[in-house]
Each structure stands twice: as structure tokens, then as C-alpha cells.
């Protein structure tokens, strides 16, 4: 097991009070697999990733329960120094906007070699060679010349390739990709996804892909966690989630997407309302106020995490399976 997250809760102190962004998240990542976390903005998917990486802002964030195990070792309460050692070697992260993650006043070559010298202790020449090889591997054309270029001279897709190359320096076991293609065009997005898929095969790397785009998730993930209001409401293999969604939120999301590969002219089914304010405690199911099939129990008690078989788990009092059984009777 590469990563095990157990009942993790993360909150932030704000002027309005404590916002509890992640409310008991449990999942794990096996070697060489791509696990997707999908959900809308504010559902806690990025916060989960940042918590594992130890990148939460120190001033106002807190982990109030749960633990994170990386390669069998508990890293929940590690100091900044220890986390800094893990970052880059055992795990690495790429972000949505590569422009803000690169230093604008240093050339790409300088930034790459700096990282290699620091983490591997190589001399300048060897570091240069290695940086070049990595840039070539991620598909930067004319890599030798481009080493001398500054980040602003690269396009968005090329910058994301550079970020991936940097993340690969120490061959991490785990890569967090936080909306890696959201800022990119579809044709470039397809290229980057293909690259990530290739790399995980080649290097037996595990990837946690955080995205709001169900299409991206369906394309490269092995397993998916659907998040809503700080909790994983449904999880399972990608085929199960997309073909046999059990949670009304997952179903609603899938239905509200128009498809390019299908003809439809009916009004798009919508999920009415909007997500809850995470400042407050939620007693029952967090999706109940927006759910068309909510029952009394939904507002009163939180549903258990029920295993539907085939590693497919759902947190709902009335998953689609039970509802259909009811219809048959």
C-alpha cells in the first residue's frame, strides 16, 4: 500500500469561525494505480491532497482527527523539515497553474538543475545531463535550447510538462496531480493525460488525480472517489462509478453533463440548490437538502458507508440498488 488515509479531518480557522473542509475521509492508493478524486469546488478534494503533501497553510489550518500513512509510515504529525524531505523523494505534486509554480526570473534549466543538485547531490554537469534527459522524456521539443528559456516563453502545456519533469526528479512513488489539465486546451489536455498514463506504467508510480472533470477521470483513472461537502460519498472502480452509480449525487453529476458522443435535445437534468456551507455541522447526509429522494432519516442521521461489492462503497440510505429492488416488489 502506497498511501493510506484514515478518517482524515481538516479545518481552517477563519474570521467567521472554523470551516471544516474535510470531514472524515478514508481511502488508499495501491502501487501503480491512478486514483481519482472528483467533486465540485469547495468539496475538499484539493485540501485532502495538500494535507497529505504537508502543504496546508500553517497559520490557520488544523488536522483534528485521522491519520495519513505513506509507505506504511505515519506522516500526520511530522515536522516541516521531515515533510520537506519526503516531498520530492517519496511524493511529489503538480498543480493547476504551472505558471505560478515556476520561478519567473530563472531559466527552466536553472530551476531543474537546482532541484537535482539539492536532492541528489550531483555536480553541475551531471545535473544538467539529467535535467535534459527528463525534459526529453516528458516530450519537450528541442530540449537543449529550451533549457535556456524562461517560463514565460513556454506555452501552458509545455510548462505543465516541465512541472511533471521536475516532479519526476527523484522518481517518487506517489504523484499528486491537482487539476493538472484544467488550464489547458482539450488537445493539449489529451497529450498531458497520455503522458501521465505512460509515466505511471514506466515508473510504477501511483497517481492521485484531483479533478472536477468527469471526462478526465473516466479517461485515465482506475478507481474513483466522489467527494461532496468534505466527505467521500461514493468510491469504487471507474467502470462501477460511471456505469452503476449508486449515490444520487454521482448520478446527478453524470446526468447533468451533455455528451458529445450522444444525441440529446431534452432539457438538462439539474441538481437544484447549491452545496452546504462548511462552517456549520451537518447532522445527516450532506446531500439531503438537494436530493430528490431524501427521506426523513437522511436529514437526521448520517448514512453508513455501505459496501456494494466489487470494492464499490457508497454513503447513502437509499442507494440505487435498493431503490430498484423496492420497485420490483
Amino acid at each position: 500500500m502506497i498511501l493510506e488515509i484514515n478518517n482524515l479531518s481538516v479545518g481552517f480557522h477563519t474570521y467567521r469561525g472554523d470551516v471544516r473542509a474535510v470531514r472524515g475521509v478514508t481511502f488508499n492508493v495501491n502501487e501503480g494505480e491512478i486514483v481519482g478524486i472528483v467533486g465540485e469546488s469547495g468539496c475538499g478534494k484539493s485540501v485532502t491532497a495538500h494535507a497529505v503533501m504537508g502543504l496546508l497553510p500553517e497559520e490557520n489550518s488544523f488536522i483534528n482527527q485521522g491519520n495519513i500513512k505513506l509507505l506504511g509510515e505515519d506522516i500526520t504529525n511530522k515536522s516541516n523539515k521531515e515533510m520537506a524531505k519526503l516531498r520530492g523523494t517519496s511524493m511529489a505534486m503538480i498543480f493547476q497553474d504551472p505558471m505560478t509554480s515556476l520561478n519567473p526570473v530563472l531559466t527552466i534549466g536553472q530551476q531543474m538543475t537546482e532541484g537535482i543538485i539539492k536532492s541528489k547531490g550531483l555536480n553541475k554537469k551531471d545535473a544538467h545531463e539529467e535535467a535534459l534527459a527528463l525534459l526529453k522524456r516528458v516530450g519537450i521539443p528541442k530540449a537543449e535550447e529550451r533549457m535556456k528559456a524562461y517560463p514565460h516563453e513556454f506555452s501552458g502545456g509545455m510548462r505543465q510538462r516541465v512541472m511533471i519533469a521536475m516532479a519526476l526528479i527523484c522518481k517518487p512513488k506517489l504523484l499528486f496531480a491537482d487539476e493538472p489539465t484544467t488550464a489547458l486546451d482539450v488537445t493539449i489536455q489529451a497529450q498531458i493525460l497520455e503522458l501521465l498514463d505512460e509515466l505511471r506504467r514506466e515508473m510504477k508510480m501511483s497517481i492521485v488525480l484531483v479533478s472536477h472533470d468527469l471526462g478526465v477521470i473516466a479517461r485515465i483513472c482506475d478507481r474513483v472517489n466522489v467527494m461532496y461537502a468534505g466527505r467521500i460519498v461514493e468510491s469504487g472502480p471507474v467502470g462501477e462509478i460511471f456505469h452503476n452509480p449508486q449515490h444520487p449525487y454521482t448520478r446527478g453529476l453524470l446526468n447533468s453533463l451533455p455528451r458529445v458522443d450522444k444525441v440529446d435535445d431534452t432539457e438538462l437534468p439539474v441538481i437544484e440548490g447549491h452545496p452546504p456551507d462548511l462552517l456549520y455541522d451537518i447532522k445527516g447526509c450532506s446531500f439531503a437538502p438537494r436530493c430528490g429522494e431524501a427521506m426523513k432519516v437522511c436529514a437526521a442521521c448520517r448514512p453508513n458507508n455501505e459496501n456494494m461489492g466489487k470494492e464499490h462503497c457508497v454513503e447513502c440510505w437509499l442507494p440505487a440498488r435498493d431503490r430498484e429492488e423496492g420497485h420490483h416488489e
Binding site: M158, T187, L214, V238, V260, D261
Partner: peptide
């Protein structure tokens, strides 16, 4: 053609054309 082939479809069984368009704008 290549633009449409690049759109990720929310269905894991739709294996899309892997002949991804090369290069950039």
C-alpha cells in the same frame, strides 16, 4: 476531427482514438 477526438467522454468504456494531435498552436 482531432478536436472532437481529444474531448474526454465521461465513460471509461469509450476508448478514444489515441492518435492525439501533435504540437501546439
Amino acid at each position: 476531427k482531432s478536436l472532437l477526438a481529444a474531448i474526454p467522454v465521461p465513460d471509461p468504456d469509450v476508448r478514444q482514438d489515441v492518435s492525439i494531435i501533435k504540437g501546439e498552436i
